[in-house]
Computed example of a mutant assay.
Amino acid sequence: METSYLSKQPIPTGEEVIGADIREGVFKLIQSHHVGFDRSKFISISELNQFRRLYLSSLIEKERGELAALDREVMDAIKNNSILSESFQEEQEDTLTLGERVADKVATFGGSWTFIIFFFLFILGWMIINTWLLITQKFDPFPFILLNLILSCLAAIQAPIIMMSQNRQEQKDRKRGEHDYKVNLKAELEIKLLSEKIDHLLVHQNRKLLEIQEVQTDYLEDLMKEIKKAK
Results as ranks from 00 to 15, higher is better:
F37P: 00
G65L: 12
K197I: 08
L209D: 06
I191M: 14
M127H: 04
F37C: 00
T97Y: 12
T95I: 12
R207H: 05
F27E: 00
I60D: 04
D222H: 07
M1T: 06
V35E: 12
K41E: 07
I117G: 05
L154H: 13
I198A: 09
L220T: 05
K225R: 15
I129C: 13
E178Y: 01
V26R: 02
L201G: 05
T217M: 08
D104N: 11
E188F: 08
Q171M: 14
G14W: 14
E221L: 12
F37E: 00
F42T: 10
S46P: 00
S44G: 13
N206D: 13
T136W: 12
A156G: 05
N130H: 04
S57T: 06
N49V: 03
D71R: 13
K229T: 15
I30S: 02
L29D: 03
F120S: 13
Q216P: 00
L133V: 15
P143T: 02
L29Y: 01
T97S: 15
K79H: 04
L154I: 10
V26T: 11
D173I: 02
L194R: 10
M1Q: 02
K8M: 01
L133H: 11
Q158T: 10
L151I: 10
I128V: 13
V74R: 14
S44A: 05
D21N: 08
G125H: 07
R39Q: 09
E86V: 10
E24A: 15
D94N: 15
L6V: 10
K182C: 03
L149K: 08
L56I: 09
M164A: 09
I227V: 14
I22E: 01
G65P: 09
P160M: 09
E100P: 09
A69T: 08
Y55E: 08
G19S: 01
K175H: 04
E47S: 06
A69M: 05
K228A: 11
N167H: 15
D218A: 05
G111H: 11
K225W: 12
R52P: 00
D104K: 11
L201M: 14
S82P: 02
